[in-house]
Design a protein around this nucleic acid. Structure first.
Lengths: 229, 229
DNA sequence: CCAAAAGTGTTATAAGTACACCCATGC
DNA sequence: GCATGGGTGTACTTATAACACTTTTGG
C-alpha cells in the first residue's frame, strides 16, 4: 500500500449509538452503566471503536448488536463530535448513530450483562462526555425523519393500533395530536393494511390492528408519492 | 493522560469541503486539481487532515481558508464517509463539510496556486474517491437547509435584487419559480431591507437592491417565527 | 418608439385545523 | 346500566398555485 499521508496525525474513532424504543407511552433510549474508566459507573451511550476492516455503518451495527442482540434494524449516522478534550482519556472523535428498534425485541441477558436500562427521554440521567448533546441531536433528527419518512413503524411491533401509532408520534413530537385529524391523515396516506384482528388489551371494545404495507409504500414512492405526517 | 484505549485501531481523519458559490445564474462548486498522489491530476474537493489540536469545525475552517483566503463563512458538517478502501493510499475516514461563500470574495491567487476552478453543479467533472457522492449529498442538504433557514443570503453579495435571490433559489432547487409568488412570499417573511438604491446592470429600468436584515430575523425567530421558502 | 427586464393582485385549489357525539364491550 | 376507550365527518381557516398586464428607460 502507498503511504502518502505518513506525516499526518491519526486518531481514535469511536461510534456511539442512541438506541430508541417505544413502550406504548413514552419514547425511550437504552443507556449503559460504564464499567470501565474514565467515568466508570456513570450512564453513557453504548459505544465502541471503529476497526480497521469495517466501515462506520458496520461498526454501528456491531455495537448495537452487542448490546441488544438485534441485527438489521434502522440505523442512521447522525453527526461527528470532535471537541479536542471531549474524552479525557485520549483524543477521540465520535461518530454518533441512532437506531430505531422494537423495544420488545431486545435481549434481556445482554441488557443485564451491560447494566443497561431503558430511560424515558424526558427522565434520562446526565450522561458522560458530550452524550447529552448527541441525544438531543438524535431526538431532533428523529422528529424530522419520522415526519418525512415512514420510520415510526420501526419502533412499533409489526401489528399496531391507530392509537399506538398516534401515541408514538405524540411522544416523538412531544405534543398532543388530534385523534380524528391524525387518523384521517394516516388513512389518506393509504400505506397501512387494516387487519380483521383486534387488540383487546387496551379497551373493552378492542381496537383494530394495522400493519405497515412496505411494498405499497415503495410502489407509491416510486410514483412520486411522499410520506408526510 | 490516561491511556485506556491503547489497543484500539487509530485512523486518519480527513476533512473535505464542498464549497458553494453562486454567479448570478448558476450554483457552482470550487474544485481543485490534485497535484499529489494518489489520483494526481484529477479533480477533487479541497481537503486536509484533522490535526491533534483542533476539532473538525476548525479543520474545515482552516481548509476552506487555505484555498479561498476567506474566514467566518457559513459551514456545516455534512456526513462522514468510511468505506474501507475509499482512499487507495491508506485507510482514511473523511468528514465532509459544505460552505456557502459569496463567490466574489475568493482570493484569485490562492485559486491559481491550487489549480482550482469553479464548476457549475450541472457540469462538474467526475471527482476522485467518493467525492461525487459527497457533492450530491451536499446539494441535497443545501436544498433542505436553504428552504428552512435564511442561508441563501450567504451565497449573495450583501446587496442583491429580488431577481438575483429568485435565480439563486431556482438554481438551488433546480426548478423555475413563479416571479409574483416568489416576491410575495419573500415580502411576507418581512426580513429584508429594501434600499433606495437600484442595480442598473441588469436592465434599463434598474431593479431595487435589498439587504438581509439579520437582526430583525433573529428577533422574529426568538418570537417563534420560522423562515420558509 | 421599442426592446428588455421590473414590478404588481386576484382567484382557485389544496392542506391543515378545530371540534362532539355515538359505539361496543366487560364488569 | 355504566364506565372506558374506539371510532367517525364537517366547517373553517390558512397556505399554495396559477396567471397577465403595465412601467421604466437607454438606445
Amino acid at each position: 500500500m502507498l503511504n502518502t499521508y505518513s506525516t499526518e496525525d491519526k486518531v481514535l474513532l469511536a461510534v456511539d449509538c442512541i438506541i430508541f424504543g417505544f413502550d406504548k407511552e413514552e419514547l425511550k433510549i437504552l443507556l449503559i452503566k460504564r464499567d470501565f474508566e474514565p467515568e466508570k459507573g456513570k450512564w453513557s451511550l453504548m459505544g465502541g471503536f471503529l476497526k480497521q476492516n469495517e466501515n462506520l455503518d458496520q461498526a454501528a451495527d456491531r455495537i448495537l448488536s452487542t448490546l441488544t442482540g438485534i441485527n438489521n434494524v434502522y440505523m442512521e449516522q447522525l453527526h461527528s463530535y470532535s471537541k479536542v478534550d471531549r474524552d479525557p482519556a485520549e483524543r477521540t472523535i465520535s461518530v454518533a448513530y441512532y437506531a430505531l428498534i422494537n423495544i420488545e425485541d431486545h435481549n434481556a441477558e445482554l441488557i443485564e450483562k451491560y447494566s443497561a436500562k431503558w430511560f424515558s427521554i424526558k427522565k434520562a440521567p446526565d450522561l458522560i462526555f458530550d452524550h447529552n448533546i448527541m441525544v438531543k441531536h438524535a431526538i431532533s433528527r428523529l422528529r424530522y425523519k419520522t415526519s418525512k419518512e415512514p420510520l415510526g413503524f420501526e419502533l412499533l411491533p409489526p401489528k399496531f393500533t391507530m392509537r399506538q401509532l398516534q401515541k408514538l408520534y405524540e411522544a416523538i413530537l412531544n405534543q398532543k395530536l388530534d385523534k380524528r385529524n391524525f387518523i384521517n391523515k394516516i388513512n389518506s396516506l393509504d400505506i397501512l393494511i387494516k387487519l380483521d384482528e383486534k387488540d383487546m388489551n387496551s379497551s373493552r371494545k378492542g381496537s383494530f390492528l394495522y400493519m405497515f404495507d412496505e411494498e405499497k409504500y415503495k410502489r407509491k414512492k416510486a410514483e412520486g408519492f411522499s410520506f408526510k405526517v
